[in-house]
Design a protein around this nucleic acid. Sequence first.
RNA 1: GGGCGACUAGCUCAGUUGGUCAGAGCGUCUCCUUUACACGGAGAAGGUCCUCGGUUCGAGCCCGAGGUCGCCCACCA
Length: 897
Amino acid sequence: MAEQRSLTPPAAVLDFSEKNFRPSVVETELYDWWERAGFFTPPATPSPGEKTFVMMLPLPNVTGDLHMGHALGFGGYEDLMARWHRMRGEATLYLPGSDHAGIIAQLVVERELAKRADPKALTREQFLAEMWKWMKFYQPRIYQQLRMLGCSLDWTRVHFPMDPDMQQRVRVHFIRLYRHGHLYRADRIVHWCLTCQTTYSDLETLHQTRTDQLSYVRYPWADPMPKGTPDLVIATTRPETIVADTAIAVHPDDERWRPFIGKAVLVPLVERRVEIVGDEAVDPAFGTGALKVTPGHDQTDFEIGQRHGLAVITAIDKKGTMTPAAGILAGAHRDAARAKAIEVLRQKGLLVKQEPITHAVAIHDRCDTVDEPLVLKQWWMRMKPLAKPAIDAVREGRIQIIPKYQEKIYFEWMENIRDWSIARQIYWGHSIPAWYCQDCDEIVVPEEDAPDPTSCTKCRSTDLKRDPDVLDTWFSSALWPHVTLGWPEQTKDLQRFYPGALLETGYDILFFWVARMIMMGIENMGDIPFRTVYLHGLVTTGGKKMSKSKGNVESPVGVIQEQGADSLRFALVNGVSAGADSQISDAKLQNAREFANKLWNIGRYVLRTIEAHPQPGRSADRSPENDAGLGPAERWILSRTEATVSELTRLIESYHFGEYAAALQQFVWTEFADVYLELSKQSLRDPSPERVSAATRTLAYVLDRVLRLAHPIMPFITDTLALQLWRQLPNSDRSPSLVIGVWPEPKQREEPLEDRFAVLVDVVRAIRNLRQSSGIRPGEKVKAMLGGDTRAISELADAIAHLTQTEVSFGAGVGPETVVRAVEVRLVAEHDAAEHRVRMERELAEARGQLGRSRELLAKPGFAEKAPPSVVASERARLTEREERVRLLEAELKRLN
RNA sequence: GGGCGACUAGCUCAGUUGGUCAGAGCGUCUCCUUUACACGGAGAAGGUCCUCGGUUCGAGCCCGAGGUCGCCCACCA
C-alpha cells in the first residue's frame, strides 16, 4: 500500500486563470487516482487499538439508475461520514455492491428480451444465461454512477448477492435457519400476482383507493325457519368468490344475528350448505353485519376459517381463471366471472341491491396488479422469536435510530410482526436448498457443507425433486453486513469489521431491510450489525420546475455532468434536518454551484498571493498564530476559523449534517471571503514584510482549514485546491491527498477580539448605509467621524476605513447621523436638518423600546436569581449599551433644539 | 381504526439540551463592471414562529386541547 500511495496525482490540473470553476474536467481522473492509490481501502494490517468505521452501502438495484434519493443517501450523508471518519484517522470501510433485485430485475430483462423473442419460450437455464448477460451491461453502469457521486467505496471488496460464493453463503443461512426451526412449509394464504406469477410478502403490497360495486346478496336458509325470520343478506365486493364460501360469520355480540349462530344457509350458485359462525373479526357496522367467509381467497376469511376449522375451496387459479370448483362460473376469468355471478344472482332474485363503495384495494407494488390471495404451500419464516432480541437491541440502546421517533415505528412493526413468506416463483434469485421426496413426501434439506442430495433421508428413494422457487430478494439482503465480510467463515474481515458502525438509508426501507438485518445479524453472528441507524427522508424535485430543455436535469447523473458532484452533494444536504423529506430545486443547485465557484475563486486569490509572496520553509497547515506580523484582522479570522472548526466538528458528530453545510457556507462566504479577504488586501499592501508574510500565511492556513472542513461534502474541488496549495506550501503531515488528510483540531480562540469585530461589522454597515442614503458614489472619498463608546473599535480604524472606502476619525460629541450600539457615526457631509431630526427621533424610539425590554427583563422577580449567570451578565452588558445609546441620541436631539 | 410527522419571511426550508420576540437560500427593491469571483460586491424591505390554554424569571422550542396538510400501519369484507 505504501508504494501505491506514492502515486502522483493526475496531471490534468485545472487552469487557475479560469474565472469559473468547471468541475467535470477533473473529477473522473481524480476519482481514479484516489481509488488506485488505495485511499478507500482500510490499511491491510490493523494498527494496535485502531478505531474502525464500517458502513455498508445500501445496495442499489443492479438494473436501476441512480435517483435523487440515492444521491442524497450515498453522496450526501454516507460518503460525508465515511470521509470524515477517514480524516479522523479511523480505519474506514465503506463497502459497495448492488442488489440482484429479484422480481424487478427479472421484469426489466424480460422486457428487454421481449423486444426480440418470447422470453417465456426459454428454459430456466437459458433465461438465467440471458440474465447474466444483462448483468454485465447493467452492473458497470450503476457502479460508474456511484463513482461519479464521489463515494469513497472500497472497490476491492465489492459484492453481488448472486456471485457463486454469495449464493453458497445464502444457502448456508437457509439451512441453518431451517435446522434452528425458524423456517417451515405450510399451506397458507399468500399474496399472488397474476401478472408476475409469483407470491409476494405483506410488505410488498400497496393499497389503492378505488370505487367498486358493493353487492347485497340473499343467502336462503337451508332449513325451514319460523315465520318472521329475517332474510340473511351479505354485502360483498367479490361476488365471484361466493362459490368458494364455506361459512357465514357474524359478530358474537351482534344482537341481530346472535340467535342464528349455528343455523345454516345455502350458498347461492352452488347450493352448498354452510353454517353461521360467530367471530370477532366481523365488523357489525359493515353492510348487514353478516360476512361471507371465503378462506380460499381472503386473508381475514382464511384466519376465520382456521379458527373454526372451515374447508378451503380454491375457485380461482394462478392465472385468474375460475376452477372447476367454481361450478357454473368455471372457465371464466375472475373479472368476467364477477359479471356473470351478478347476472345469475339477479335472475334468481337473490341480488337485493348494489351500491358504490370506496375502499382500499391491495395491489402488488412492482406492477400494480390487484392482489389475488391464494392458499398455496409455501416456505415461511417464523418471525416472532427472531424479532424479540432485535426489539431488545433498540430498546436497550445498543442500536440507536436517528431520528429518534423512528424507533417507535420500528417497535410498532416489530411487536406485531407476522411470518414472512420467503419464496418467489421466479427464476432470478437464490435457489431454495430443499428437495421433496416423490415417494414419501419428506422434505430433504442437506447439511450446510454437503452437496445437493440424491436420495431421501427417510425412505432412501432417489426420486427427489428440487424446490423450483427462489428466495425473496430481501432474504439475502438481510445478511449483507456479515455475509459480505465472509460469513460463515471466520475471516479476518469479519472479526475486524463486524459489527459495523452505522447504517444509513431511507426511512422507507426500515422494515424491508433495516429490521431484517438486525434480526439476521443477531441470529447469525450473535451480535447487532451496526450501532447507529441514520434514516434520511425522501427527496422530491418540486419547487421550481427544473428546466427540461437542458436535458434530464432531474437525474443526479445529469446534474453531475452539468455542474459537478460537489454542487449536487452540497445542495442535497444543505439546510435539511435529519429524517425530514426535502426538495431539490434549481435554486438550491444554483446556490451550491455558486458556492463551489466561490471556493474556487478564494483558492485562486490565495494561490496567487502565495505566488507573489513565497513562504519558503513554511507549511500551510501550521497556524501562523505566533507570527510577529499578525494584525487584528488576521487574529480575528484565525479565531473565527478555530471557532468554525469546533462548531463543524460538533455538528457532524451529532449528525446535524444540514447545519454543518449551512455553517460551512456561512463562514466561508461571509467571514472569510467578504470580510477577511478584503482586509487581507490592506495587510498585503503594508510596507512591513512581516505583515505581508503573516497575512499570506493566514490566507494559506485558513484556506487549508476550509478545504479540510469542506472535503467530506465537496471532495473534488477541495482536493483539487489542496493539491495545488500544498504544491506551493507543503502540508506538514505530507499526506498526498485530502482524502487521507487530517481533520482539524480546534485551537485557542480570542473571543474578546471576536466581540470587537462584531461591533466593527455593525459600524461598517452603518457607514455604508449612510454613504448610500446620502448618494455618495462608491469610489468617492469622504470622511466619517466616530464618537460615543468607541473602545471596541479604537484600534480597528484602518479596517473600517478599508472596508468602507471612508476616512475615519474619532471625536467626542460628533453630532451623529446614526447611533449603532453605543457608537455615534457621522459622515462629514451636508444633510437636511429636518430629515436628520426625524431619523434621530425614530432611532431614539427604537432605542428606548430596546432599553425598556432589557430593564423589564432584568427587573423581573426571579430572573437575576434563577437565570444562569452568563445570561444575566450578557443581559446587563446589553442594558449598559442600550442606556448609552439612548443617552447619545437624547443629547443629539437636545443639541438640535 | 391505530400510530407518526409537518404547520416559522412571497417560495423552499434551518433553528442543537427553553435564554438578544428569530435565521439561510431563492425571489423583490436600490446602487456598483473596485485586477479572487457579475456563478460577484454593497445596502434595504419582508415574520401576531397555525389557534387557544398551561408550566416557567423566561417558550418558535416543554405540556394539554383544537385546526389544516401529509405519511405509515391494519383482517374496511
